[in-house]
C-alpha cells in the first residue's frame, strides 16, 4: 500500500519534470544548444498568465495566452540572440542561456516584486483518490498533459513533413540546406515550441506551488532528467522524468527513513539531510561514466 502511494506521488511530480525536460530536448535535438535557462521560460509563463488574469482574462484563457506569449518570446530569443551565436563555442552558448535566465528573473522581479503570490485556480478544485493519496486535478492535468504532449511530439516528428524537416535540420544541417530546408526557420520553430511548453509547465507548476521567482529553479531539476533520458530522446525525457520523480519519492519515503533509523540506532549521526537532492545527481554521475548517451539517447561522439 505504502509503495503504491509513494509511486503515485512520484509519478505526479515526475510528469512535471518530464514536461520541462521535453522542452530542453526539443531545442537540443534541433540546434545542439542546451538551454540552461529553461527554468526562466517556465517562470515567465507563470507570470505572464498571472498578468493576463490581472488584466481581466479568465484563468483558462490567460493560460492559453501565456503559452502564445511564450512561443513568441522563444522565437525572439532564437532570432535575436542564438542566431548570432551559431559559431560560438558550447560554453558561450550555455552561458548565454544562463544570462537569459538572470535577465528574465530580474524582469519579473522588477514588475511583480519578490513576494510569493497566490495563483488563480485554472482547474476545478478537488482530487482523485488513488491508493489513499488524494491527487488534485492540477496534478492529474499535469500528468495527462505531459503524457499527451510527449506522445504528440513523437508522432509529429515521425509522421508529419514538418517533423521530418526538423529531424533533417537537426541531424545534418548542411544536407538539410542542400535539399532546400530552411534550417534556421526550423530552429526558430523549435525554440517557439519549446518555450511554449515551458510556459505551460510554468502555469501548471504555479497552480501547484503558487507564484514566485523560485519557479525558475525547476530548470536545474530537469537536468538529471535529460541526462538520464538521453539528450536526444523525447521518449527518454518522459520515461526519465517519471523515473526520477519516483526515485525521489522512494528516497524520501523509504530510503531516508530506513537509513536514518539505522543510523540513529547505531551511530551518533541523526540525519542524512535532504538526501533526495543528490540522489538524482549521483545517478547522473554514474550514468555519465557508464552510458553517457542516456537510456534512450543515440550513441554519438560524447566520449573521446
Amino acid at each position: 500500500m505504502l509503495l503504491l502511494q509513494i509511486a503515485t506521488a512520484g509519478i505526479a511530480t515526475g510528469s512535471v519534470y518530464a514536461l520541462i525536460a521535453i522542452g530542453i530536448v526539443l531545442i537540443y535535438k534541433c540546434s545542439g544548444v542546451v538551454n540552461f535557462g529553461q527554468g526562466g521560460y517556465v517562470m515567465l509563463g507563470a507570470y505572464a498568465a498571472y498578468a493576463l488574469t490581472r488584466l481581466g482574462l479568465s484563468p483558462q484563457l490567460a493560460a492559453a495566452g501565456a503559452v502564445l506569449i511564450l512561443a513568441a518570446v522563444g522565437a525572439l530569443t532564437e532570432l535575436l540572440v542564438l542566431r548570432r551565436m551559431l559559431k560560438a563555442p558550447v560554453v558561450a552558448v550555455m552561458m548565454v542561456t544562463l544570462g537569459l535566465l538572470i535577465l528574465f528573473r530580474a524582469v519579473c522581479l522588477a514588475i511583480f516584486g519578490p513576494d510569493q503570490i497566490a495563483f488563480p485556480q485554472i482547474f476545478p478544485q478537488g482530487a482523485v483518490d488513488i491508493a489513499g493519496i488524494f491527487i488534485t486535478y492540477n496534478y492529474v492535468a499535469a500528468a495527462v498533459l505531459s503524457l499527451v504532449l510527449s506522445l504528440a511530439f513523437l508522432a509529429f516528428y515521425r509522421y508529419t513533413p514538418m517533423g521530418l524537416m526538423q529531424r533533417a535540420a537537426a541531424d545534418n544541417s548542411r544536407a538539410a540546406l542542400a535539399v532546400g530546408i530552411h534550417v534556421s526557420n526550423q530552429v526558430s520553430v523549435a525554440w517557439a515550441v519549446s518555450s511554449a511548453l515551458a510556459g505551460l509547465g510554468g502555469v501548471l507548476l504555479a497552480t501547484l506551488n503558487s507564484l514566485s521567482l523560485t519557479l525558475s529553479s525547476i530548470g536545474l531539476v530537469a537536468f538529471p532528467v535529460i541526462v538520464l533520458g538521453g539528450l536526444t530522446s523525447l521518449m527518454g525525457s518522459l520515461v526519465a522524468g517519471l523515473l526520477l520523480g519516483m526515485l525521489e519519492a522512494f528516497t524520501d519515503g523509504l530510503l531516508t527513513p530506513a537509513l536514518e533509523s539505522f543510523l540513529r540506532a547505531h551511530t551518533s549521526v541523526y540525519s542524512v539531510g535532504a538526501l533526495q537532492q543528490v540522489v538524482p545527481y549521483m545517478l547522473v554521475g554514474a550514468m555519465l561514466l557508464v552510458r553517457p548517451q542516456g537510456i534512450f539517447g543515440q550513441r554519438g561522439t560524447e566520449r573521446v
Binding site: L2, Q5, I6, A9, G10, A12, T13, V16, I133, L205, L208, N209, T214, S217, I218, V221, E248, A249, F250, T251, D252, G253, T256, P257, Y270, S271, G273, A274, Q276, Q277
Partner: peptide
C-alpha cells in the same frame, strides 16, 4: 517520534508527509 529535514526549495513533499502519516 521523528524529525524530517527536507530540501529548502522542495517543490513536492508528499513522500515526507507519508512518513509523517506513518
Amino acid at each position: 517520534v521523528d524529525t524530517i529535514e527536507f530540501r529548502y526549495d522542495a517543490q513536492d513533499l508528499t513522500a515526507q508527509l507519508l512518513r509523517v502519516k506513518s
